[in-house]
């Protein structure tokens, strides 16, 4: 059906503004409405905080880990957006692929240049989900689990900011950082550690682990989980406790 002249004008105007189509626009409106309404501390965070965090005295083999990776439009949690989230679960030291998840997140703006890195283009985002939905699912499923990420600062900051915006309050999340573990290990071996040595793929190669497509949230979460399994075994301590792991992961 041909567009009416003023419809065409609106489209042109929208594209000049680098704004996405009406669907994303609508989502953005919805999103900002939530912001302005200042939703009270939602049930999600309450429920999450009610369940005690994993006991630091737990043996590593008994811990439930959730390894998470997010792809974003940039590095600033305040101004950039989450584009996709992937996570895998480790139980009894086995990565359970049945619980692996990957979600594309609807962003209020075009993913633009960042698509070069994570390969998520605007046209993929039609199957995208609302960030609040995904985070609700994540928080209710993994309350009490041990959170893991590679260079965990990014994940921690973006989730914290997003939760504050969406639910009015951030959950208490404590992360084990595989990058910090790797840094410690290399330090102990008396090696001069350069930044690129700590990149996820460099770590995988060092441990002879299979590498895969980078900057895909699920692939990276899986890679990070492999790295953690390997790091746990290489501690050579069968009685390793969660508290020891937190200590080892301090940079």
């Amino acid at each position: 059906m041909p567009l009416l002249p003023n419809q065409r004008k609106v489209r042109k105007w929208l594209s000049r503004l680098q704004l996405p189509d009406w669907r994303t626009l609508a989502q953005q409106l919805n999103f900002s409405r939530k912001l302005t309404l200042k939703v009270p501390v939602s049930d999600i965070i309450q429920q999450f905080d009610k369940i005690p965090a994993a006991d630091p005295r737990l043996n590593i083999a008994d811990c439930r880990f959730v390894v998470i990776d997010i792809e974003t439009t940039g590095l600033n949690a305040k101004t950039d957006y989450i584009v996709s989230i992937g996570w895998v679960v480790i139980q009894a030291q086995e990565i359970v692929l049945a619980n692996a998840k990957h979600h594309l997140i609807a962003t209020p703006v075009s993913v633009g240049q960042s698509a070069v890195f994570h390969g998520v283009h605007d046209h993929h985002l039609t199957s995208a989900r609302d960030l609040s939905e995904v985070l609700s699912e994540f928080l209710s499923d993994f309350a009490g689990a041990v959170f893991v990420a590679h260079h965990a600062n990014i994940e921690q900051q973006f989730i914290t900011v997003a939760c504050q915006r969406l639910f009015g309050k951030a959950p208490k999340l404590r992360f084990v950082d595989t990058m910090a573990l790797e840094w410690q290990r290399l330090q102990q071996h008396g090696k001069v550690v350069k930044n690129q040595d700590l990149q996820l793929n460099a770590c995988l190669q060092r441990h002879h682990l299979p590498t895969s497509q980078q900057h895909h949230a699920l692939a990276d979460a899986y890679s990070c989980a492999l790295l953690l399994l390997c790091q746990l075994k290489q501690s050579r301590d069968p009685n390793l406790q969660l508290a020891d792991l937190y200590k080892m992961a301090k940079m």
Binding site: E94, A225, R236
Partner: peptide, 11 residues
Amino acid sequence: LTRHFTVYYYQ
């Protein structure tokens, strides 16, 4: 099928 697998690291 991949969803039925688990992955373990042996030392």
